[in-house]
Amino acid sequence: MAPGYYTPALMKPAPFDYHQARSVSEAVAHLGEYGYEAKVLAGGQSLVPAMNFRLARPAVLVDINPLDELDYLDEDGDTLRIGAMVRHVTFEQPVTKGPTGRLLAMAAHHVGHLPIRIRGTFGGSLAHADPAAEWCVIALLLDAELSTRSLSGGRDIPAAGFFQTVFTTALEPEELLVEARLPKLSQHTRVGFQQFSRRAGDFALTMAAVALESDDGRVGNARIALGGVSDRPLRAPEAEQALEGQVATEESFRAAAEIAALEIDAIGDIHGSADYRRDLVRALTRRALEQAIAA
């Protein structure tokens, strides 16, 4: 058996070839070779179930779990650098002082169940791009920048342009997501995170993440990101704009939440209609704002 190559054992998914990458460059080489036929296996918490249902049928899996070089957290001035292989559970305790670490911890507790958090990865979640994934919403809220590597080099993609539609990102088939860079929130930023799911640990029907400043009782730098409502995570720019300079009151929050509910392009599924999603946006956005200001 060639090193790094594993004879496919019998298993529930449709047959596939498996490569265990020993370095980022080796992973990138595999992706360059197989392109669309390949899928990257990180934590596997979404990919493997999809393969077991035979909904996902990649011909080749490139396993990047051995890549310790992608398992890091670095603070680089005002930027938090997160290696793609950092597991969700890492964020349950704040990884950085201040609101950014607090917000990540708030969101982390909503990611699946503990076994999922132990295995699943930050980068895997972004690359999978489930519209109801917490990290996608956080990345959008914080205007994260996402770095890729490929045989032809690499590039940086802003979160706003990264998430395209359900399970679809700006990543090219030969690109590997290697790092997310989160510009840290100012120390006096207040944050809130609210979500509603059918059961504990389920993907949220809707979630709202907010960040705002209100040093003098007036709102500044308001940000609102929403998940689970559309085919991708969304910002609510009109609602953010409406909050700007407003006194932080129940009324102004209510008004902003109303704007958010109306401005988003909501999608329904078997767990709730588009109208219901809008109702959730209205409630959760207001609650997240209240949570932020109360903290």
Binding site: F53, R199, A200, D202, F203
Partner: peptide, 16 residues
């Protein structure tokens, strides 16, 4: 049939 996994057919857990 739209509910062919336990992500869509939802038995309550201990938390519920």
């Amino acid at each position: 049939i739209l509910t062919t996994s336990l992500m869509d057919f939802l038995p309550p857990t201990l938390a519920e």
